[in-house]
Nucleic acid binder design. Structure first.
Lengths: 348, 348
DNA sequence: ACACGCGATGTTGACGTCAACATCGACGGC
DNA sequence: GCCGTCGATGTTGACGTCAACATCGCGTGT
């Protein structure tokens, strides 16, 4: 009754054999019913179904996985759920995987240390997964000198191109260019940059693309300020930026840091967008309600999640890598944090 | 070499038998080495280890689960990763489970419909899990008329008490009282409330506790405004609140809605905390960088996650339910969004 | 009436692991 | 020198499922 035997030990649930006995059929017929095969007599099927629900039968996925040689499960290795982008991508991955009939096995990296990463990968090797999506920033991977189990399909999100794995990611370059050109088009002489941590490839690419865009337009490239994606780090860098009168436009590598910068600007009494224009990156839900509402680059996390799952499943089922990275386009969402520069700053 | 056989099908990895053959021992000895038993000769162990790494052996967790009758995995059923609290709790659960040697199986509910919830629970029954943590709001559960597989240990986070499952949650009542009394102590005549959706038990409790605190202090209870946890809904409700001159203090049921309210107040030109004081709930990382930085109630998500995992594992391993809900204390974090009421409003 | 086909159902064995039991050899005590 | 013991290793079988093959009975065509 309670799922325990007289000794108080956990008892296994009913198996096909139990259902078969109760329904007066063979185990194989139960299997056929459980798997929706249609070559079973209707009356028999009903009898089996009745026995199943009466016994509370549920298929043993371990036995099924062992027999079939596949788990129908994919591992997702994440570093932290603090970052908005990671969380959103994970959400999209989970949804896409579920729709495709795969379960999600979440493998957290417990801290930043190299051994924690190595540990996570070791655990991963022992998990019941058919493939892996790596959501941690790739430099961390490098440092850990990670060796994944051979023959385990892998897809990487947010990575450099020098891995031998398929890559799916937002088109960071295009997004950063969009942000930078938006500010330039408004008439700003140049655009400052508050970047993400050097350990992130995404941050790297946004910074590079911002710089290249400035160069393409023949503008001066101001020094870069680095944060670590958090609002706190945006605030710290923001205090320095806010103190510089010549700063009229800033492209911030994510919305959370932009929030910190906004606070620093408010504290200093510099008007946004009156004196300084700001563009973020991500379009987190809150960005529309920052003060002022933030102009930002919207990432299409749903597509990133779906495409990475699709690529992984293809690899699992067909054994095919395809090596050209998949880049998902971003787009600019114009709100109130950007405007033309103040007249006094028009010359640069 | 590539993990496929000549027909292009996925080939299973090497098994214990393969390792045993290469090392010239029996499968059982390989098993002993793999499980760290110490009754194996050092030289033999080395030989087995060498064979393992040369073949790229990794234990088949399906076979192990089948043999041992346990998966060492817990399912977490979540509705959405958009809400800050859910995400943070999931993170803490994943960490705690990993430390305890359990894997995490993420089971998303694809949409709000009843069938989606039922679907998710059905899927759950077929997952390779020893137990389940339910992270969705409990009213949704109710509506779905959910029947969980019998004998599967369950722990619920954020739920009413009328389930026969162990419950772990933040002490919503205590947190809401803290918030309300903080504002009262500053001298506000009464405190308005911007609550969460009626479908959430957490929102319910925060509202009830706010009301009770007001009554306990002999204050008037203003009408409640409801949001749905999002900044957008906070903004909508906030526009109404901002229009009322008599509002000097608002307790908002989460930080995201507080952000929306802040925006509405700014748009209307009402100073925070000069004219209106605001307290949020959650203490999301960004709250410290809102404008102004938000006074809020900090939830201890780490403890909630850890305690729910501990409770579940105890249930799994010992078969013991313990029915008193576990309440994790919250605490007030005082920042700049609260101050005494303006002199003009002192009388109420 | 008989062979044949076909649909419904049953039987067998293998997936990889590990507990329980069996075996074997070395060493110490008397 | 014989027996008992203990440590290292091997052998067997069972966990639950499902593909492959076997069987059985009924209807159809000639």
């Amino acid at each position: 009754m309670t799922g325990e035997d007289s000794a108080g030990r956990r008892r296994r649930g009913p198996s096909m054999a139990d259902v078969a006995r109760m329904a007066g059929v063979s185990g194989q017929t139960v299997s056929r019913v459980a798997n929706g095969r249609n070559n079973v007599d209707a009356a028999t099927r009903d009898r089996v179904r009745a026995a199943m629900s009466q016994l509370g039968y549920r298929p043993n996925s371990a036995a099924r996985a062992l027999r079939n040689g596949e788990y129908r499960s994919i591992g997702v290795i994440v570093f932290e759920l603090h970052s908005f982008g990671t969380t959103r991508t994970l959400d999209a991955i989970a949804t896409a995987a579920t729709i495709s009939g795969y379960a999600i096995n979440l493998v957290p990296v417990l801290d930043v240390s190299q051994s924690a990463v190595t540990n996570a990968f070791t655990r991963l090797g022992e998990q019941a997964v058919d493939g892996v999506i790596i959501l941690i920033e790739a430099h961390t991977l490098d440092e850990a000198g990670v060796r994944l189990p051979d023959g385990l399909p892998v897809v990487v999100v947010d990575s450099s191109a020098h891995y031998d794995f398929p890559i799916v990611d937002t088109d960071q370059r295009q997004g950063a260019r969009l942000a930078t050109e938006h500010l330039l088009n408004l008439g700003h002489a140049t655009v400052w940059h508050l970047g993400g941590p050097p350990t992130s490839f995404a941050a790297d690419r946004r910074r590079q693309s911002w710089e290249q865009t400035l160069i393409d337009h023949g503008r001066e490239v101001p020094p870069v300020y680095d944060g670590d994606w958090t609002a706190g780090s945006g605030y710290e860098a923001g205090r320095q930026l806010a103190a510089k009168a010549e700063v009229t436009a800033v492209f911030v590598a994510n919305d959370q840091m932009a929030l910190g910068l906004l606070r620093a600007l408010h504290e200093r009494g510099r008007a946004v967008p009156g004196e300084v224009s700001i563009v973020g990156f991500d379009d987190m839900e809150e960005a529309a309600h920052f003060w002022p509402p933030l102009t930002t680059i919207r990432q299409n996390f749903v597509d990133v999640g779906r495409l990475s799952v699709d690529a992984l499943i293809q690899e699992i089922q067909a054994g095919e890598h395809h090596h050209e990275p998949v880049a998902v386009a971003a787009k600019l969402v114009h709100r109130s944090s950007t405007a033309p520069p103040p007249p006094s700053a028009s010359g640069g």
